[in-house]
């Protein structure tokens, strides 16, 4: 029943790694066996977001090149015993791994884990091709900005061409105060444009920076982003969590602002 998800966005800096770390931790808290693979060779970051940067010995490139066994490269999380991270090489480039090798590695990991999360690099080149090769589902992360939505649309087009089982959207850094003023696209607006089912909306929350500083994902904590990531993790695991928290509030305000901004 193991599921392989790729977390991607096209544009850099929208929160792929943060989203990956939080969904992974969220699923592990529910008791699932989870493996997160950082595929951003040369610019790895998932290890620092998870606070595991001091434990790296072997990495993804060592595994595909046969320098170590798969299990030697898997780092067990500090807090959750069912959560593992496979870091990637920092001193190599994206061409060190090819899609066939990724497919082979993931096939091996499917026997061990319930969920495999692939943290995709920005861009649509080799690194993206590697990350999407072995995945069944995709989570596209975007922010309510023109540039990020444009890149998300491009990525969705590429994923659709590869016939993914599921493509879902996470909208990150939403600011409800700006949406109320009519100065930021709401979740509904972004969904209208991209026409992909919504997995969740993460509010712009300074606690995300604090949690990254500490190397501890904030999923499940009593913070706006922590609650949003908890909902997202629940939905990924298959629980039916209604989108009322994400959309109910926003659509009310878009209605109000719509009265003032009628063309």
């Amino acid at each position: 029943m193991s599921e392989v998800l790729v977390i991607t966005s096209g544009k850099g800096g929208v929160g792929k790694t943060t989203t990956c770390a939080n969904i992974g931790t969220g699923l592990a808290k529910m008791g699932y066996k989870v493996c997160m693979i950082d595929t951003d060779i040369g610019l790895r970051n998932l290890d620092v977001v998870m606070g595991l940067e001091n434990r790296i010995v072997y990495n993804l490139v060592d595994v595909v090149e046969g320098n170590c066994r798969v299990k030697q490269a898997l780092i067990r999380d500090k807090r959750h015993s069912s959560l593992y991270l496979m870091p990637c090489a920092q001193t190599r480039d994206k061409s060190s791994v090819n899609p066939e090798q990724m497919v082979k590695l993931i096939r091996h990991l499917r026997d061990i884990f319930d969920f495999i999360l692939l943290d995709c690099p920005a861009g649509i080149e080799q690194g993206f091709q590697n990350a999407v090769a072995g995945a069944d589902r995709a989570i596209v992360v975007t922010t309510p900005e023109v540039s990020a939505v444009r890149d998300a649309d491009r990525i969705i087009g590429l994923l659709e061409a590869r016939e993914f089982d599921k493509i879902e959207l996470v909208i990150n850094r939403m600011r409800n105060d700006m949406v109320k003023r009519g100065d930021m696209m709401s979740a509904t607006d972004v969904m209208d444009i991209l026409s992909v089912p919504l997995l969740g909306v993460v509010p712009d929350d300074e606690n995300v920076v604090i949690s990254t500083n500490q190397g501890e994902p904030l999923v499940g904590t009593n913070t706006p982003a922590g609650k949003a990531y908890q909902n997202i993790s629940d939905r990924v695991s298959g629980k039916d969590v209604p989108l009322t928290m994400e959309l109910g509030q926003i659509s009310f305000w878009t209605k109000i602002s719509g009265i003032f901004h009628k063309k």
């Binding site: 900005e145 023109v146 939505v149 444009r150 949406v179 003023r181 009519g182 100065d183 930021m184 696209m185 709401s186 607006d189 209208d192 444009i193 602002s257 901004h261 063309k263």
Partner: peptide, 10 residues
Amino acid sequence: SSKEIAKDRL
């Protein structure tokens, strides 16, 4: 609103 401009441009 700037949101409308963003939507139209997109």
